[in-house]
Amino acid sequence: MPASALLTATLEQAINRVLPLDPDSAARLQALSGARLTAFVAPLPFGLSLSFSEQVDVHAVHEAPAEVVAALTEKDCCIQTSLSVLPELQQTSQLTRLIQQQKLTVDGELQIAQQVSALFQQLDIDWEDQLAQVTNDVIAHQAFTTGRQVHERVSSLLGTFSRTLGNAVVEEKQLAAHRLAVMHFNDSVSTLRDDVARAESRLEKLEQRLTKR
């Protein structure tokens, strides 16, 4: 069974179930109608293509990126990047830096990539309302209120635990260095590195002078 087909089928199902939960996404999807975004994300052995119509069709691309780029039209965009860079793509201000660092290659219509990003980032789903449709308002409200309270309590407990553990490790048992000590150590290493570089440079100049004599 082709694993790529299973992956794309799952992705397609998920996307086309989630998008209609936000009524505003229809307009954003409409703006993308006819467009296609192809992404090659290393180390995935194949590309992923998202074609937009009244729904999103997700397909695996088994051609080489160069072949896809060669066949781009004005409604196509092709990006090549790696999994580690994906989180940074959320900040559009970082795109230029990533392109300059050759961590991201964009071919075709960049606006399509931005619109696709907006389609998913601007998703605003009222999950409480969704639950209310299958249960009722009271149960849904109660479930979400309880969920929020549990989340707050767990976060608070985790915060307290983390602080207590930090104190025990750093202050009481002294198993790890204090944050300030680590920062000071890093600064000292940087200063030492600079000093070494300066000394190396001076030595090189001295060597050159001695060679000339």
Partner: peptide, 19 residues
């Protein structure tokens, strides 16, 4: 249901584009 994945793979390999 596996026939759907076989067909999907066929479409992937077809390289169909707009037009």
């Amino acid at each position: 249901g596996v026939h759907r994945l076989w067909k999907r793979y066929t479409i992937d390999c077809a390289g169909a584009r707009a037009g």
